[in-house]
Design a protein around this nucleic acid. Structure first.
Ligand code: ZN
Ligand code: ZN
Ligand code: ZN
Ligand code: ZN
Lengths: 172, 172
DNA sequence: ATATGTATGTAATACTATAACAGGTCAAGA
DNA sequence: TCTTGACCTGTTATAGTATTACATACATAT
């Protein structure tokens, strides 16, 4: 359950990637390649809808609502009923390729798929960027607090809303 | 922003109150009294709907959806349209008398109103109990992780799903 | 070829939340 | 006293999010 840092995982190597200037085409391509490998290794299928859904999520370091996703998918010839989007998004989430941001009722691509990680999300209220921060110490503190009450954590959501560095400077 | 522990705040004195056997009538009465004092001190009004909404939340250490609350309120002669419930719940949340549990799309009474605190919620998936755990170290870790990316946190929600001590034993 | 599990598509519905407007109460302040 | 303005409640209508149920198609393996 502990977060392992892998140098070959771009998300681990550069945790603040989302907020920084970077070669995003490479970043997205890389995440997609990792996803494909992962799904294949598990004997599952990254079908056209699922693959396209992930690609769309990877277009930006943002969160996207299921209905916005549905609009995109429908425009490309996929079904245009809610379950089409929810099923693809749920599949990606179950496989650790996407995360659900509860505060936004939206989904975002996972930036280090395949790595066991406890995600904490930093959501910039100005530019809508969503970054996945290294949260091992955060989860450790939470687990400790829970243990105090004899509570055992199975899943957790840790989300923070605020301003990214760029938007702070823009505000000043 | 740091959490201050007050011995005269039941929630602070017994962080795991919600999961333990306790005199809940006293617990709820106390929270209501604190709420009344707090609102009066701020020159605001704990009107009948607002007060009743808080009382209903205080009936149990659980989270309650806005529509369930609306049903209760309507049965007691208050308005029966969604804004009636949402306005009361939003007021309570703004005043720190209730918290929103995003994972459940629901609200829960604050167990230590008046104390500056960063709440982390422990949600038992078996008995639906919601407890407010001391989260100062958790928020500290999160703030530190954010600072690494130059991100400044304004609000956060930290929620954990799992099994409380009692329900673990029941399962075994 | 047939059976099985899985994936997709659709219709219908349930659940959650907000916008916009009308009327009521109450306490300053003219 | 009368008026003004802030605030609270209520209603209608609508927007946004998510799931259930069922039918069809497709892959893979006997
Ligand atoms: Zn990128
Ligand atoms: Zn930003
Ligand atoms: Zn209690
Ligand atoms: Zn329990």
């Amino acid at each position: 359950m502990a977060q392992m840092l892998h140098d070959d995982c771009p998300g681990c190597a550069a945790p603040d990637l989302a907020f920084a200037q970077h070669d995003h085409a490479h970043c997205a391509h890389d995440a997609l390649a990792r996803a494909e490998a992962l799904i294949a290794a598990r004997g599952l299928r990254l079908t056209p809808v699922r693959r396209r859904t992930l690609e769309i999520l990877l277009e930006a370091h943002r969160a996207m609502g299921a209905y916005d996703m549905l609009t995109r998918l429908a425009a490309e010839g996929f079904g245009n009923q809610p379950p089409v989007a929810y099923r693809a998004l749920d599949f990606l989430e179950e496989q650790g390729l996407a995360h659900r941001i509860r505060r936004l009722n939206a989904f975002t691509a996972c930036m280090h798929p395949g790595e066991a990680h406890a995600p904490a999300f930093l959501i910039c209220r100005a530019c809508d960027t969503v970054a996945e921060a290294p949260a091992t110490p955060v989860l450790a503190a939470l687990t400790k607090a829970a243990r105090h009450s004899g509570f055992v954590i199975e899943r957790s959501n840790i989300e923070a809303l605020g301003l990214c560095h760029t938007c702070q400077e823009a505000a000043a």
